[in-house]
Structure formats: C-alpha cells, structure tokens
Simulated assay, not measured.
Amino acid sequence: MTDAAASSAVLVARAKRLATRMRGERQTAIVPAGNVAGRALTTVIAIMTFLAALTVGTVSLVSDTASRWQNDISDEVTVQVKPAEGIDMPTALETARQIALQTPGVTGASILDQAATSRLLEPWLGDNIDFDALPVPRLVIVSIDTNDPPNFAFMREELKEAVPEAELDDHRAWVSRLVTMARTVVLIGVFVLSLVIVATTMTVVFATRGAMSGNRHIVEVLHFVGAQSGFIAREFERHFLRLGLMGAVAGGSVAIVLFVLIGYFTEVNRQTPQADQISALFGSFTIGWTGYAGVIILIATVATLTALTSRLTVTRHLAEIDMISPVEN
C-alpha cells in the first residue's frame, strides 16, 4: 500500500468514526478542543469583549449623567451675589433669599454658607480661604416647582432692583452644552461598540476558515461519505460557541470587576474635594443596573455571534464543495 493510499485510508476511517456521532456514539470531535488557535481566539474574544464592555459602561454612565443634569436644571437655580465695595454680604444674601421665596413657583431657598463655599473652591484655592481678602461670590440655592416653574425674567428684575450685585443663573446654557457633549460621547461610544463587534465577527470568520483549512480533508471526506452539512456545521458551531462564551465571560467579568472597584474607591474617597468635583459631574461613578445588564447582554451577544458566524462560514464552505464536486466529476 502506498503512502498516499494509506493516508487516504486513515482519513476515511477517521471520518467514518466521526460520522457515527450522528447515531449517538461518543467519538472524537472534528475540531480539537484545546489547540493553540482556539486559545488565541478565546484571548482575542476576551479582549474584544472587555473593550466593548468598557464602552457599554461608559455610554451607560454618560447617558445617566446627562439625564441627571437635565433633571438638575429643572429642580434648582442659583442666585450669585458678587462682593462689592460697601456691601453687607449677609444682608444681601438674606434679601436675595427672601425675594426668591416670595416668587411664585419657588419651593425653597437656602444660603450656601462659607464652609460649603470654601469646600467647593478648595481644589483650586486651598483650604484656608479668606473671604474678606478674596472677591469670592456667595450663592443662594433656590428650589423650584418643576410642574409650575417661576418667571425667571421677573425674578431677575426683582433681584436687580433689591440687590444690584445679585445675578440669577438657571444653568440652562451651561448644562445644555454638557448634555450635547454627553450625547456626542454616547454616539461615539455606539460607533466604537459597532467597530468592536465587526472586528470580533471578522476574527471569528478568519479563525473558522483556519480551522476549516486545518481539518479540510476530514471535513470533505465526512461530507462525501454522507455526513450532512448541518451536522458538520453544528460541530463547528458548538466548538466556537464554547470558545466565544469562555472569552466573552472572561472579558465581561474583568470589566464588571473594574467598574465595581472604581465605584468602591470613589465611594471611599468621597470626602475629598477631588471626589466632590467628580461626584458633581458623574454622581457616584457607578454604571448602575442598566450598565451591568448591558454587559451581560453583550456577553451573550458575543458568544451567540461567534457561534452563528462560524456556522455560516462552514455552511458556505460546504456549499462551495458541493458546487465544485459536480464540475470535477
């Protein structure tokens, strides 16, 4: 028996053993479970899933923050009283507070004391601020009725007449820019997420083609001895579903742990001035249940996409074999 004939006989024998799986017998899988290419693909999918999960978490955080900013502008406005020559700051602040309280649509007003003001400015001016030496404006926080907001133009006129140094700020222009920026970040995040998904799909396609090339003769012999295309495709689908699920779970889990750690350290350091500024922008810096749900959905999507992509690639390859075989015959 020649070497070529012996090799063909071995391939046919192995193909027949694999084909018996259709009758429920336990045999070796078509695609080796622990080869180097499989481990490399699992690592790539884990990295891709980690990056995608970071994108999902960031988009969720920014989206929630934008919503909170929009709610904040409907809940509160501030009256800023600037220091001037001869002004009695406590009296001016109390006058501004009383005018705000007397305005229809206002539900409450409070003066931000020197300690709170000093804390807000501590990251930039230090913790020993001399309010007599520095022209630091003072604030009155005004709560408004969101269902029946006050007439801001009327309030401005009343404040200017009673306290010329007072200025009403409804934050709408500033927050509008931040919300626009947040929505832009969300769109960019969705775009990046789409790129990661496309890159993952292409990686799986190339990995499947590589596995097909490495097992080409076995697959072709299996196909010729009667194994149905669906059976062969399911073998590859199960193999790549396992790889995709392992990689996606690993990458998503690392991302979730990272988000939990960031939220924990932010909470622990909440009492520092820097943490106050971060909390003012991003709240507690946690992605919330929607972010975690998004990561879990992403894990399932990546695993499913990996399996379906491999199945479609194998099915297409077997269809090409069927088209070539009649021509060769």
Rank of each mutant, 00 (worst) to 15 (best):
L125Q: 04
Q80Y: 01
P150F: 11
R119P: 10
G210H: 02
A211D: 10
R183H: 11
R138S: 15
V185S: 11
V204G: 01
I111S: 02
E157F: 01
R172V: 08
W124P: 02
E85W: 03
T103G: 03
I141Q: 15
M155Q: 06
A115N: 11
R97M: 02
R97E: 02
V205Y: 04
D148E: 12
F154V: 11
I144W: 05
G86K: 06
G126W: 00
V192A: 12
R97L: 02
W174Y: 09
L159M: 05
F131N: 03
A116K: 13
P104Q: 03
N147Y: 04
L93M: 07
R177K: 10
D113S: 07
N151A: 00
S143R: 13
F152L: 14
D88M: 08
A182I: 04
A92H: 09
T208P: 07
R177P: 01
A84H: 13
P137I: 06
M212S: 01
R183P: 07
L168K: 03
A182F: 12
A207V: 11
W124Q: 15
P83L: 11
I188Q: 09
P123S: 11
L187G: 14
E122D: 01
A173E: 11
L112Q: 15
V204E: 01
E94W: 07
A162T: 00
R177L: 06
E158I: 00
D132Y: 01
P137Y: 06
P150C: 08
E122N: 01
L193P: 04
L193V: 12
E165D: 06
D113W: 04
P135N: 05
R209E: 03
W124V: 15
M202Q: 12
L187T: 15
F131L: 05
D170Y: 05
T95N: 02
E157R: 02
A84C: 09
P150V: 05
I188M: 13
D145T: 07
T117R: 10
M181W: 11
R172D: 03
T200M: 15
R209I: 02
P123W: 12
A92F: 05
N147I: 06
S110N: 13
Q80I: 11
M155L: 14
G86E: 03
V196F: 13
H171C: 09
V163R: 09
T117K: 13
E158Y: 02
G126S: 01
V175M: 05
D88G: 09
R156H: 07
V179D: 04
L93F: 03
E122G: 02
T95W: 02
D127V: 01
L139N: 09
A92V: 10
T208M: 10
R209L: 06
S118M: 09
V205M: 04
A109N: 09
A84N: 12
L134Y: 07
V205C: 05
E94I: 09
F191W: 15
A211H: 10
T117N: 15
A92M: 08
A166R: 01
I141Y: 10
A109T: 05
R138Y: 08
I99W: 00
T201S: 14
T95Q: 09
T107Q: 14
G108N: 15
A182Y: 11
A116Y: 05
L93H: 02
D88S: 14
D113V: 10
A100H: 04
A84E: 13
D130C: 00
I99C: 00
L178P: 00
P150G: 10
L193M: 13
M212T: 02
L178R: 01
I87T: 07
